[in-house]
Amino acid sequence: MTQPMNQKPEKDEAFLQDCLYFTTNRLSRAITRMADEAFATTGLAPAYGYLIRLVIGSPGITQKELSEKLSITPSTLTRFVDKLETKHLVERKVHGKTVMVYPTEKGIELGPTLRQASKRLKQNYEEILGKELSDQLTEYLTSSSKQLEK
């Protein structure tokens, strides 16, 4: 395929550094690697760990609330809860049309390990970025996400 005569080929890759899509995905891959390492001791992926922490903190939380808090679709949350139920870490109870999620004893026992993994992750990225930048970046990303989701 040939370039139109009035258009130069893009040899300069600066557009990648100026693109929010590219830079957030790059950041996401880097922080995901760090999170996977920090949570390796739990035997769970970070997303499952955060889900259990929410359930421990709010026993009986609805699946709808969990999907909203974790910013994942209800169908993805259902798959997550299914997996955690098979590991006997959470259990569901249906009340009418509402599905509520509770931690099991085994899930509660895992709580301190999950909190430690979260703490280790935060310490790791704060060591690299510094506490101030880490806090600012988290705040900017949170507010930006909320605006873009509107």
Rank of each mutant, 00 (worst) to 15 (best):
residue 90 V to C: 10
residue 128 I to D: 10
residue 101 V to S: 04
residue 131 K to M: 09
residue 21 Y to A: 09
residue 30 A to V: 15
residue 116 Q to Y: 09
residue 29 R to V: 07
residue 129 L to Y: 12
residue 55 V to Y: 02
residue 103 P to H: 04
residue 90 V to D: 12
residue 104 T to P: 01
residue 55 V to G: 01
residue 120 R to P: 00
residue 43 G to W: 01
residue 79 R to W: 04
residue 55 V to H: 04
residue 129 L to W: 15
residue 96 G to K: 08
residue 27 L to I: 02
residue 44 L to A: 02
residue 144 S to E: 08
residue 67 S to L: 00
residue 85 E to L: 06
residue 146 K to G: 05
residue 94 V to C: 03
residue 86 T to K: 15
residue 5 M to L: 11
residue 50 Y to H: 12
residue 31 I to E: 10
residue 53 R to W: 00
residue 60 G to Y: 00
residue 117 A to C: 07
residue 97 K to D: 06
residue 41 T to N: 07
residue 8 K to H: 08
residue 5 M to W: 06
residue 136 Q to K: 14
residue 134 S to Q: 08
residue 2 T to H: 08
residue 67 S to P: 03
residue 105 E to C: 05
residue 15 F to V: 06
residue 102 Y to H: 02
residue 118 S to A: 11
residue 114 L to S: 03
residue 75 S to L: 14
residue 112 P to Y: 10
residue 87 K to R: 15
residue 28 S to T: 06
residue 128 I to N: 08
residue 78 T to W: 14
residue 4 P to N: 03
residue 39 F to K: 01
residue 67 S to K: 03
residue 1 M to A: 13
residue 147 Q to N: 10
residue 130 G to V: 07
residue 76 T to N: 14
residue 92 R to F: 04
residue 116 Q to C: 07
residue 54 L to K: 09
residue 103 P to V: 04
residue 95 H to S: 10
residue 139 E to Q: 10
residue 33 R to H: 08
residue 44 L to H: 02
residue 136 Q to D: 14
residue 142 T to H: 08
residue 19 C to P: 01
residue 13 E to D: 15
residue 121 L to F: 15
residue 105 E to I: 07
residue 143 S to P: 01
residue 88 H to L: 05
residue 106 K to R: 05
residue 14 A to L: 12
residue 111 G to N: 14
residue 5 M to T: 09
residue 147 Q to V: 13
residue 75 S to H: 14
residue 123 Q to I: 11
residue 77 L to M: 15
residue 87 K to I: 00
residue 101 V to L: 07
residue 4 P to H: 07
residue 10 E to H: 07
residue 107 G to I: 01
residue 69 K to F: 01
residue 30 A to I: 11
residue 101 V to F: 11
residue 83 K to F: 14
residue 90 V to H: 09
residue 26 R to Q: 13
residue 149 E to L: 14
residue 12 D to N: 15
residue 12 D to Y: 05
residue 5 M to Y: 03
residue 12 D to P: 02
residue 36 D to R: 09
residue 139 E to H: 15
residue 94 V to K: 14
residue 79 R to Y: 07
residue 134 S to N: 11
residue 128 I to H: 11
residue 62 T to L: 00
residue 149 E to I: 12
residue 134 S to V: 11
residue 55 V to L: 01
residue 40 A to S: 05
residue 25 N to I: 03
residue 49 G to A: 05
residue 126 E to Y: 10
residue 59 P to K: 00
residue 132 E to A: 15
residue 48 Y to Q: 05
residue 86 T to F: 06
residue 115 R to M: 11
residue 77 L to T: 07
residue 104 T to M: 01
residue 147 Q to G: 04
residue 102 Y to K: 00
residue 71 S to Y: 03
